[in-house]
Simulated scan of single mutants.
Amino acid sequence: MHVLVVEDDAEVSQFIQKGLTSEGIGVSAAYDGVIGRSMINEHQYDVVVLDVNMPGMNGYDLCRFVKQNWPAIPVIMLTALGSLENKVMGFESGADDYLAKPFAFKELVFRLKALARRHPARAPLPQRLELLDLVVDTSSHQVWRADERVTLTAREYALLEYLLLRQGKVVSRAELLENVWDVHFNTNTNVVDVYVNYLRRKIDRVEPKLIHTIFGVGFILKAEP
């Protein structure tokens, strides 16, 4: 799961980002509505968390923008404006949920996961994913590296596809367990590391290496060392 938090209060935003990361949830942040709109245009998110009072574009307008263009993306309004009138405005703008500040962080996580489960991935996959000379055909699940066909198991392919869709971003082990293995609880299994090594043997037999370990955090698929 990858969440976009659009919140102009840096302290609140950093608190949410730190907490979500510790839960193994991917998170990106924007500090005003205009930047948030630009990021939504460029990336696919599983849930969007919006503050209401923000410079550039307020949360209600940004929520309307999201729902007009990607109606299946769930939106949580997260704001100090907790009156019934404000909640009605939030829901009328298209919000799927509304959480007033101050809030219990565990409740935010619960609501995020519940919304993500009810709203599976919306956008169809691009037919072709690429990074340098690594090419993946998502319709046939065929993979090439340096113009040579690479044979992967179903799980290896799912792992590679997930990393490619998030290329350039660090992906935690917990996020991979949740999205590739459908494991939604803490576990001491090393299955992620085992399969990353399987992938490395097949994908990174040539230079440059594409799969990198970020120690203590997770993995990243990128062209640079």
Rank of each mutant, 00 (worst) to 15 (best):
V34W: 01
N179K: 15
L163S: 06
F65I: 06
I203D: 10
E178V: 02
K169R: 14
A154L: 09
I220C: 07
F185L: 11
S93D: 11
L152K: 09
Q68A: 14
I76A: 02
E107D: 12
V196Q: 05
E148D: 13
F110Y: 12
S83D: 15
D61E: 15
K67G: 07
F219T: 04
I203W: 05
G24P: 03
D9V: 11
P208W: 05
G33N: 00
M54R: 06
M54C: 04
N186M: 07
L125H: 07
Q17C: 00
L115R: 11
V196E: 03
G24Y: 01
K169S: 11
R173M: 07
W70Q: 15
V194K: 13
S172D: 05
A10C: 06
A223P: 03
Y31N: 14
G168M: 11
T138W: 08
I16H: 08
E7H: 06
L176E: 04
A72P: 00
V34H: 01
D46N: 15
E161C: 15
V5N: 08
D8L: 05
L152E: 10
I220D: 01
K87W: 02
S83G: 08
D182F: 14
D51L: 02
V48R: 03
P120I: 08
K106F: 07
Y98F: 15
L221K: 06
F103Y: 15
V6Y: 04
L115A: 12
R117C: 09
Y60M: 05
D133E: 13
F65S: 03
D32G: 02
L176W: 02
L134N: 02
R201W: 04
A104L: 13
R118D: 14
P102N: 08
A121P: 10
V5S: 11
F215L: 08
G82T: 09
F91S: 03
S83N: 10
H2C: 04
N86F: 14
D97C: 03
L199G: 07
Q142I: 06
N188A: 12
M77W: 01
T213F: 01
V75I: 10
